[in-house]
Design a protein around this nucleic acid. Sequence first.
RNA 1: UGGGGCGUGGUGCAAAGGCAGCACACCAGACUUUGGAUCUGUGGAUCUUGGUUCGAAUCCAGGCGCCCCAGCCA
Length: 569
Amino acid sequence: MEPTETPTSRLPAFIREAVAEDLKNGRYTYVRTRLPPEPNGYLHIGHVKAFLIDYFTAKEFGGELYLRFDDTNPSKEGTEYVEAIEDDASWLGIKWAKVTFASDYFDLLYDWAVRLVKMGLAYVDDQTQEEMSASRGTLPKGTKWSETESALKPGTDSPYRNRPVEESLDLLERMKNGEFAEGSRVLRAKIDMANPNILLRDPVMYRIMHVHHHRTGDKWHIYPMYDWSHGQNDSMEGVTHSLCSNEYIIHRPLYEWFLQKLEAFPSRQIEFSRLNLTYAMMSKRKVRKLVETGIVSGWDDPRLTTLRGLRRRGVPAEAIIDFVTGTGETKNDSWVEMAQFDAIIRDTLNKIALRRMAVLKPLKLVIDNYPDDLVEEMDAVNNPEDPSAGTRKVPFSRVVYIEQDDFREVPPPKYFRLFPGNEVRLRYAYLVRCTSVVKDEAGNVVEVHATYDPATKGGDAPDGRKVKSTIHWVSAQHAIKAEVRLYDRLFTVENPDVGDDLQSIINPASLEVVTDAFVEPALDNVKAGEKIQFERTGYFCTDLDSQPGKPVFNRTVGLRDTWAKINNQ
RNA sequence: UGGGGCGUGGUGCAAAGGCAGCACACCAGACUUUGGAUCUGUGGAUCUUGGUUCGAAUCCAGGCGCCCCAGCCA
């Protein structure tokens, strides 16, 4: 029996310790976490870390997880994203106790805001956006922090800051009812315009938006800001631990201020560092631009690190989870190398992918002494890593296709594959020796001739002689034509999130479409999403574009290629 | 002359005052019916200065570096 993995190995130590301590000292008697995606785009690998931490924290402590959509900005959000996010998260294997929405709490949240106004802790401000920005006591955009001493400068109070409570109450009600134009007024918390933490300089709670909401329709004309929603929703739902990325550290004092003033259930915010992956684009805005400008084929383009893209490329959910949890979670800013992700994908696929033979760049090999009309069924292993995957028959005949790369008329040093006079093994078939080549007028090799040793059926020589190389092949008369999409990294730079000229950082070789590959007959009827290893080439996955008799394969990741390294030296 | 966070090989993570270890990457070799997988080995790190201590990556003080914050985004 395999030892089952302890759930503790999936959680960052500092979070586990903090939660355990809260339980031990009675701060909480149970654990509840929440997953707070904004339904304004598709999930990418950067989100997975937060998902997993929330999920495993709840799981490890016998608590529960809520999936709560942060739908506080209807101008950017929509139902299609809600469905896609639920679908992607389910695919990852994440389970939640229930689905909620920030908008479920709009009524209660409004009541809480009224309470704060009545307590003299919030007020309606009539300043323009520019006035507010100027009075915050900071410098215009573009100024470097270090270039100024004015960052010290406290903000100045709004002229509306001390208006009567009754007046604020009336204006807030009318804001809610849609009586005022967008941008004309906001509700602000009354905290401290001189606070060194800018978020505490009377933050905006509600802004006016005459926008249709995908769940509440036209009921509301004001919508809450993140800071005046997230913590309150956590509290309303009885969330104990609100886990988020480091960028929210400076929001924590505000998070706590609201809950203390309202004497509400004291949810606790704990932060961790977000996942940065080299060569991956994490900015939703920029990914959207890639999709909209047609640089990629859609949100599920296999070159994207969206969950949908990874899924279509053939990356198993298990590999994503192992990768993200395996990178370890700390508060350190970090950049994980894409190579590490590739290694885990290979590792996962190595155990489960069925082996098949496929020739991507075909070269005809004629075995002159093999009978013209003979076809033999060769026994081939489906997965050497997993005997239970069984074997299959592969037809062999006089003319086969081999990879162009597996033949050189003039072999470079350390090249062990086919060249005139050399003997190699055709995998699971025979030892063959190259006898001659046929060239076209331009001098290109278009056909290779060889002879086979009938005593070596299956690949072993009775006299015990060894060959240095085994190459794969597909019988020409049995071959199935296939399209193969060779994906490579989308960007030429490690951090594609900086800069705005997308076109200049796109890897022109990120997709090579091979339309006339040949694959063995066993690949005729594979269902979409099937994980296959093309022997000696890489891991592939059948694409949803596959048609009967015309399969399409995506390269998930190449095999580790020692020859490529030798070749480069 | 603002506030906050973070500093361990190339990258990511361990080591909770006691031999600085693991994975990926890199290099060398063994084995191999995938130049895959597997196995073995090499090289390489505690930001810095001082202090406490028999002993410091770990504790203390100063310095340095990187990151986040001035949306009516989340």
